[in-house]
Design a protein around this nucleic acid. Sequence first.
DNA 1: TCCTAAAGGCGACGAATGTTGCGTTAAGAT
DNA 2: ATCTTAACGCAACATTCGTCGCCTTTAGGA
Lengths: 203, 203
Amino acid sequence: MNAEADATPFPERRRPGGRSARVRAEVLAAVEQELAEHGYDGLTVDDVARRSGVHRTTIYRRWKTVDALLVALLEAGEDDTWAPADTGSLAADLTALNRELHASLAGTSPTGAVIAAAFRAPAAAAALTRFWDDRYQRSAAVVTRAVTRGEIPEDTDPDRVLMAATSPLFHQLVLRRQPMTPAEADRWAADAAAAAVAGIYRA
Amino acid sequence: MNAEADATPFPERRRPGGRSARVRAEVLAAVEQELAEHGYDGLTVDDVARRSGVHRTTIYRRWKTVDALLVALLEAGEDDTWAPADTGSLAADLTALNRELHASLAGTSPTGAVIAAAFRAPAAAAALTRFWDDRYQRSAAVVTRAVTRGEIPEDTDPDRVLMAATSPLFHQLVLRRQPMTPAEADRWAADAAAAAVAGIYRA
DNA sequence: TCCTAAAGGCGACGAATGTTGCGTTAAGAT
DNA sequence: ATCTTAACGCAACATTCGTCGCCTTTAGGA
């Protein structure tokens, strides 16, 4: 989540210039830090204002709610160039996906805190959902490549393969909030690949 | 979630009697109704007090927070006699599990509202986690029965089978908040059973 | 350079949310 | 029947949260 570099300037021709952009960056950086330190429960507009040096009123006017702050932070961190790794085998591709996901969900990094918080704020949850949808769509390439290579049946359903590999990670790390070793994440990738090879996810 | 019948009386020998128990039942019932009507965001102590006829101060003193109200509601609804269906085949057993889970997670019933709310309140989330842990432990019988019948390999890992069947439901219905048809839930059960038969979840 | 208006800063206000002290009610014991 | 005290009701108070009116700053154009 790179809050300093704002990839999306203002669409309207208002005042994209110096102060507004600086205020925006400082506020989002403060949100990220507050989130990492105190979690979602300790995230208050007052604290963000104090840390960023921006007045409360300004934050309320520009973002309205704490939710919206999270949405902005999520959108600022989006990466339009992301693509799944291409290793040459379905199992290895899925393993790479799961390791990346595991690092995001299990880590105590700011990213992890943002993700954890987003599940508790309706608007932020919607933004995060769009993010995951995009990732899944891009990741479908992993399955179609495996089909092209002849690794798995032609009528394999990409969504089910990806879901089989990744949903246990979400379930255990996000919902049940229990730890998971990288080895376990790898195993879910391996299981999904093996099941796909066995033709279990055929349409 | 049956809030009227309180299965857990006070452990200390204080005053388990008439008024306290009645107050508790009325408050929990009010929480359940408020939750079903306005959702978690609209759940406020004041409204619960008005609906239940119990004074705000009393609620604050006995439960402290809105979170604790949810925890109490969850604990009041626990069913110690629950057991997974025993149909005679792994696929059918898993299907029964997934249908029950689907009804709980997808339904607009009070139960569904309580579950949805619990994911946004830390303490309630912990209580709900304990609930699911218990369910998974009981459900492992489904897999061990299949082993006994010779349906699947002896060294099949029950947890992985159950996780494969159920985690896609949580992922889609709770995290991504997207709809799922009962047929899709059935298919995840079928996929997990097929993979188990294929020996994919061997230790 | 000067002008305009959008954006930010400031303090005060109002509403909602919790807290506290004290009087009242009633459960359970004698 | 009477007594004791835990639990509840009540009202006033404190705090936090979000909003509003007004003034100041500054980006961007003439």
